[in-house]
Protein backbone atom coordinates (compact mmCIF):
# COMPACT_ATOMS: atom_id res chain seq x y z
CA UNK A 1 0.00 0.00 0.00
CA UNK A 2 2.89 2.30 0.84
CA UNK A 3 4.32 1.62 -2.61
CA UNK A 4 1.01 2.55 -4.11
CA UNK A 5 1.18 5.84 -2.24
CA UNK A 6 4.90 6.31 -2.73
CA UNK A 7 4.79 8.78 -5.59
CA UNK A 8 1.74 10.56 -4.26
CA UNK A 9 2.70 12.03 -0.92
CA UNK A 10 -0.42 14.26 -0.89
CA UNK A 11 -2.50 11.10 -1.22
CA UNK A 12 -0.70 9.44 1.69
CA UNK A 13 -1.34 12.47 3.81
CA UNK A 14 -5.00 12.61 2.82
CA UNK A 15 -5.52 8.93 3.60
CA UNK A 16 -3.79 9.23 6.97
CA UNK A 17 -5.83 12.27 7.90
CA UNK A 18 -9.08 10.66 6.77
CA UNK A 19 -8.26 7.47 8.69
CA UNK A 20 -7.61 9.47 11.81
CA UNK A 21 -10.88 11.37 11.33
CA UNK A 22 -12.80 8.12 10.96
CA UNK A 23 -11.22 6.63 14.08
CA UNK A 24 -11.94 9.84 15.96
CA UNK A 25 -15.60 9.90 14.88
CA UNK A 26 -16.16 6.23 15.58
CA UNK A 27 -14.48 6.22 18.97
CA UNK A 28 -16.15 9.40 20.17
CA UNK A 29 -19.60 8.38 19.05
CA UNK A 30 -19.13 4.87 20.47
CA UNK A 31 -18.22 6.30 23.86
CA UNK A 32 -21.04 8.86 23.76
CA UNK A 33 -23.62 6.34 22.58
CA UNK A 34 -22.71 4.00 25.46
CA UNK A 35 -22.98 6.89 27.90
CA UNK A 36 -26.68 7.03 27.03
CA UNK A 37 -27.33 3.60 25.51
CA UNK A 38 -25.95 1.55 28.40
CA UNK A 39 -28.28 3.08 31.02
CA UNK A 40 -31.15 2.86 28.53
CA UNK A 41 -30.42 -0.83 27.94
CA UNK A 42 -30.27 -1.44 31.69
CA UNK A 43 -33.62 0.28 32.13
CA UNK A 44 -35.12 -1.78 29.30
CA UNK A 45 -34.03 -5.01 30.98
CA UNK A 46 -34.82 -4.19 34.59
CA UNK A 47 -38.25 -2.65 33.98
CA UNK A 48 -39.40 -5.71 32.04
CA UNK A 49 -41.95 -8.09 33.54
CA UNK A 50 -40.77 -9.97 36.65
CA UNK A 51 -37.47 -8.08 36.75
CA UNK A 52 -36.05 -6.07 39.61
CA UNK A 53 -37.60 -2.71 38.67
CA UNK A 54 -40.69 -3.96 36.85
CA UNK A 55 -42.55 -1.05 35.29
CA UNK A 56 -44.67 -1.98 32.32
CA UNK A 57 -45.58 1.54 31.22
CA UNK A 58 -42.00 2.84 31.22
CA UNK A 59 -40.76 -0.30 29.53
CA UNK A 60 -43.26 -0.06 26.73
CA UNK A 61 -42.75 3.67 26.14
CA UNK A 62 -38.95 3.31 25.99
CA UNK A 63 -39.21 0.19 23.87
CA UNK A 64 -41.40 1.98 21.33
CA UNK A 65 -39.08 5.00 21.15
CA UNK A 66 -36.09 2.73 20.61
CA UNK A 67 -37.90 0.80 17.90
CA UNK A 68 -39.03 3.99 16.16
CA UNK A 69 -35.52 5.44 16.18
CA UNK A 70 -34.06 2.20 14.86
CA UNK A 71 -36.49 1.99 11.99
CA UNK A 72 -35.29 5.27 10.42
CA UNK A 73 -32.58 4.61 7.80
CA UNK A 74 -29.34 6.33 8.79
CA UNK A 75 -29.10 8.40 5.65
CA UNK A 76 -32.50 9.95 6.42
CA UNK A 77 -31.55 10.32 10.07
CA UNK A 78 -28.55 12.35 8.93
CA UNK A 79 -30.72 14.85 7.09
CA UNK A 80 -33.41 14.97 9.77
CA UNK A 81 -30.83 15.87 12.39
CA UNK A 82 -29.17 18.73 10.52
CA UNK A 83 -31.04 21.46 12.47
CA UNK A 84 -30.18 19.83 15.81
CA UNK A 85 -26.54 19.43 14.81
CA UNK A 86 -26.36 23.12 13.76
CA UNK A 87 -27.86 24.08 17.07
CA UNK A 88 -25.45 21.95 19.13
CA UNK A 89 -22.20 22.36 17.18
CA UNK A 90 -22.79 25.49 15.09
CA UNK A 91 -22.36 23.67 11.79
CA UNK A 92 -23.66 20.51 10.17
CA UNK A 93 -20.51 19.84 8.17
CA UNK A 94 -17.29 18.19 9.30
CA UNK A 95 -15.99 15.53 11.61
CA UNK A 96 -17.19 17.01 14.89
CA UNK A 97 -20.64 17.76 13.49
CA UNK A 98 -21.10 14.20 12.25
CA UNK A 99 -20.61 12.88 15.77
CA UNK A 100 -24.12 14.13 16.63
CA UNK A 101 -26.10 11.96 14.16
CA UNK A 102 -23.70 9.04 14.62
CA UNK A 103 -24.21 9.07 18.38
CA UNK A 104 -27.95 9.56 18.21
CA UNK A 105 -28.35 6.77 15.70
CA UNK A 106 -26.21 4.42 17.79
CA UNK A 107 -27.95 5.01 21.15
CA UNK A 108 -31.05 2.89 20.43
CA UNK A 109 -28.85 0.25 18.80
CA UNK A 110 -26.61 0.13 21.88
CA UNK A 111 -29.67 -0.03 24.15
CA UNK A 112 -30.94 -3.16 22.38
CA UNK A 113 -27.53 -4.78 22.27
CA UNK A 114 -26.98 -4.14 25.99
CA UNK A 115 -30.49 -5.44 26.67
CA UNK A 116 -29.74 -8.67 24.82
CA UNK A 117 -26.52 -9.20 26.78
CA UNK A 118 -28.14 -8.58 30.15
CA UNK A 119 -31.13 -10.78 29.35
CA UNK A 120 -28.84 -13.79 29.05
CA UNK A 121 -28.13 -13.74 32.78
CA UNK A 122 -29.87 -16.53 34.62
CA UNK A 123 -32.83 -15.56 36.75
CA UNK A 124 -31.39 -17.72 39.54
CA UNK A 125 -28.41 -15.41 39.99
CA UNK A 126 -30.66 -12.39 40.37
CA UNK A 127 -32.85 -14.28 42.83
CA UNK A 128 -29.83 -15.33 44.85
CA UNK A 129 -28.81 -11.67 45.13
CA UNK A 130 -32.35 -10.68 46.12
CA UNK A 131 -32.38 -13.43 48.74
CA UNK A 132 -29.23 -11.89 50.23
CA UNK A 133 -30.99 -8.55 50.56
CA UNK A 134 -29.36 -6.77 47.61
CA UNK A 135 -31.02 -3.61 46.26
CA UNK A 136 -31.51 -2.84 42.57
CA UNK A 137 -28.26 -0.85 42.27
CA UNK A 138 -26.25 -3.66 43.82
CA UNK A 139 -27.85 -6.20 41.51
CA UNK A 140 -27.06 -4.07 38.45
CA UNK A 141 -23.51 -3.24 39.54
CA UNK A 142 -22.47 -6.52 41.12
CA UNK A 143 -24.45 -9.12 39.19
CA UNK A 144 -25.80 -7.96 35.83
CA UNK A 145 -22.86 -5.95 34.48
CA UNK A 146 -19.95 -8.14 35.70
CA UNK A 147 -21.70 -11.37 34.64
CA UNK A 148 -22.40 -9.96 31.17
CA UNK A 149 -19.01 -8.28 30.63
CA UNK A 150 -17.73 -10.59 27.83
CA UNK A 151 -21.01 -10.28 25.96
CA UNK A 152 -21.09 -6.50 26.52
CA UNK A 153 -17.57 -6.15 25.10
CA UNK A 154 -18.56 -8.02 21.95
CA UNK A 155 -21.49 -5.61 21.74
CA UNK A 156 -19.09 -2.65 21.84
CA UNK A 157 -17.16 -4.16 18.92
CA UNK A 158 -20.35 -4.65 16.92
CA UNK A 159 -21.43 -1.07 17.66
CA UNK A 160 -18.06 0.41 16.68
CA UNK A 161 -18.02 -1.60 13.45
CA UNK A 162 -21.52 -0.43 12.64
CA UNK A 163 -20.40 3.13 13.27
CA UNK A 164 -17.52 2.71 10.81
CA UNK A 165 -20.13 2.00 8.16
CA UNK A 166 -22.35 4.86 9.31
CA UNK A 167 -19.40 7.26 9.39
CA UNK A 168 -18.68 6.48 5.75
CA UNK A 169 -22.27 7.41 4.94
CA UNK A 170 -21.89 10.60 6.97
CA UNK A 171 -18.81 11.28 4.86
CA UNK A 172 -20.91 11.58 1.72
CA UNK A 173 -22.74 14.56 3.18
CA UNK A 174 -19.49 16.19 4.22
CA UNK A 175 -18.83 14.41 7.47
CA UNK A 176 -15.12 13.98 6.83
CA UNK A 177 -13.12 10.82 7.24
CA UNK A 178 -12.63 7.95 4.80
CA UNK A 179 -16.16 8.30 3.46
CA UNK A 180 -15.58 11.84 2.27
CA UNK A 181 -12.20 10.88 0.81
CA UNK A 182 -13.62 7.98 -1.15
CA UNK A 183 -16.52 10.05 -2.36
CA UNK A 184 -14.57 13.13 -3.47
CA UNK A 185 -11.57 11.44 -4.99
CA UNK A 186 -12.87 8.03 -5.80
CA UNK A 187 -16.35 8.74 -7.03
CA UNK A 188 -16.28 12.34 -8.26
CA UNK A 189 -12.75 12.33 -9.67
CA UNK A 190 -12.50 8.69 -10.74
CA UNK A 191 -9.32 8.17 -8.68
CA UNK A 192 -9.63 4.38 -8.38
CA UNK A 193 -6.48 4.15 -6.27
CA UNK A 194 -7.94 6.30 -3.50
CA UNK A 195 -11.13 4.30 -3.51
CA UNK A 196 -9.29 0.99 -3.19
CA UNK A 197 -7.00 2.30 -0.50
CA UNK A 198 -10.02 3.51 1.44
CA UNK A 199 -11.65 0.12 1.15
CA UNK A 200 -8.48 -1.61 2.37
CA UNK A 201 -8.11 0.77 5.30
CA UNK A 202 -11.76 0.19 6.24
CA UNK A 203 -11.29 -3.58 6.10
CA UNK A 204 -8.27 -3.32 8.36
CA UNK A 205 -10.12 -1.06 10.78
CA UNK A 206 -13.13 -3.34 11.04
CA UNK A 207 -10.96 -6.43 11.32
CA UNK A 208 -8.91 -4.80 14.07
CA UNK A 209 -11.97 -3.76 16.06
CA UNK A 210 -13.52 -7.22 15.87
CA UNK A 211 -10.26 -8.86 16.90
CA UNK A 212 -9.84 -6.48 19.81
CA UNK A 213 -13.39 -7.19 20.99
CA UNK A 214 -12.99 -10.96 20.58
CA UNK A 215 -9.67 -10.99 22.38
CA UNK A 216 -10.88 -9.00 25.36
CA UNK A 217 -14.04 -11.09 25.68
CA UNK A 218 -12.12 -14.37 25.33
CA UNK A 219 -9.59 -13.29 27.90
CA UNK A 220 -12.32 -12.76 30.47
CA UNK A 221 -14.19 -15.95 29.54
CA UNK A 222 -11.00 -18.01 29.75
CA UNK A 223 -10.09 -16.56 33.13
CA UNK A 224 -13.51 -17.59 34.48
CA UNK A 225 -13.42 -21.04 32.94
Amino acid sequence: MLELLGNNSWMAEAVLLATWETIYMVLTSTVLSYLFGLPLGIILVTTAENHILENRALNQVLGSIVNAARSIPFIIFLILLIPLTRFLIGTSIGTVASIVPLTLAAIPFVARIVETSLKEIEQGLIEAAISMGANAWQIIGKVLLPEATPSLLLGVAITAINLVGYSAMAGIVGGGGLGTLAYYYGYQRYEDTVMWITVIVLIILVQGMQMLGDNLANKIVNKRR
Partner: peptide
Protein backbone atom coordinates in the same frame (compact mmCIF):
# COMPACT_ATOMS: atom_id res chain seq x y z
CA UNK B 1 -28.40 -24.82 40.79
CA UNK B 2 -26.00 -23.18 43.31
CA UNK B 3 -26.43 -19.76 41.66
CA UNK B 4 -22.82 -18.69 42.10
CA UNK B 5 -21.51 -15.66 40.22
CA UNK B 6 -19.27 -16.86 37.40
CA UNK B 7 -17.57 -13.45 37.37
CA UNK B 8 -16.25 -13.89 40.92
Amino acid sequence: QFNLLSSR
